[in-house]
Every structure is written in structure tokens, then in C-alpha cells.
Amino acid sequence: MHKEHNGNAVNRGYVQSLPKYITLCERNYLRALKVLPEEKVGARRQIKIGSMDFFISIDNVEKYTTDIKITQQHSLSSHLGQFELAVRLYHDAKVAEVYQHNYHQRVKPSYRYPNPSMHHKDEKYQLNAFLGDWLLACVESGRVPLDWDVNNGLV
């Protein structure tokens, strides 16, 4: 974005709408609570949507935060790798935010464009919007496979 300043063009970077972003993260927090497994480290839940399997696992639990990992596995092609999001839930602020994806470094609030890694200027917002869409699909259409022990632990 260019703005005139004393007759010279000044280049300003991408500026994210904070209220819009906070609202997105608040919605993601509420949706995430609906699909979380038991809140203890190592707990895991599988959610099926169509031919895809999603796994939510609890990586870390602290007093004010919970770190979860969301992994997507599919049977579409062996050439497509699995997708992964690392998400932190902030219980005091009641927001959920993607902080890492596909084993990459932490997601920055914004990126200069163009950049060597081809990140979008608003990549952080887009990842959190994707998380929102995914959580909504899980809540509305997801199925949790039941793991019944028909023998009640007896062999």
C-alpha cells in the first residue's frame, strides 16, 4: 500500500485487522472445546469427515494454555503428505491460535511479499481461518468412531 508523504511514496506493510482476527480466534476456541479429547497430555481423538481422518492430540497442558496438534490423514494419494496444525488455546483470553503448521517454524503475524518461502502477507490469518472452517466441519459433519470393548476387558 502506498501513501503520499511530503511528495514521496512510502511503502507500508500489510496491516491486519485486529478485531476481525480476535473474533476469528474466539470462535475457534469455542469450536475447539467441542472436539477436544480429555484434557490430559497424550489424549487423542479421531474425527472422520468423508474419506479423511483427523486426529486431535493434546501435546501440553498448563494453567492458562493447552497445546493441541491437529493432523489430517487421507487416502486420496500416497504422494500427498499429511497436514498438521499446532494450535494453542489460551483459556484466560478464550482464544485459539495456530502457531505452527506442517513442522515449519512458528507462524509470523505477517510477511513481506514477495518472500523466499512464498508465504502470503496474511498467512497467519489464513491459517486460522482454515482452522475455523475445519473445526466447523468437525462440529457439523464429523463422526467420532466408537471404540467399544464388547468383552468388557475380559478375554
Rank of each mutant, 00 (worst) to 15 (best):
K3I: 14
G7T: 02
V10I: 15
N11D: 14
R12V: 13
S17N: 14
P19Y: 03
L24P: 00
E26A: 13
E26C: 07
N28H: 02
Y29P: 10
Y29R: 13
L30D: 08
L30T: 02
V35F: 05
K40E: 11
K40L: 03
V41R: 11
G42F: 11
R45S: 07
R45G: 04
R45F: 01
Q46Y: 00
I47K: 12
K48D: 06
I49W: 00
M52F: 11
I56R: 12
E62I: 00
K63M: 04
D67Y: 03
D67P: 04
D67R: 15
D67F: 02
Q72M: 14
Q72E: 13
H74G: 12
L76G: 11
S78Y: 09
S78L: 14
L85D: 00
V87G: 04
V87Q: 05
Y90E: 11
Y90W: 11
D92Y: 06
A93D: 15
A93H: 08
A93M: 10
E97M: 13
Y99N: 07
H101Q: 03
N102Q: 09
H104A: 00
Q105F: 08
K108S: 09
Y111M: 00
Y113N: 03
M118F: 07
H119D: 05
H119L: 05
K124L: 15
Y125F: 15
N128H: 10
A129G: 00
A129Q: 08
D133K: 14
W134H: 06
L136H: 15
C138P: 01
E140T: 11
S141K: 15
P145T: 08
D149V: 14
V150S: 12
N152D: 15
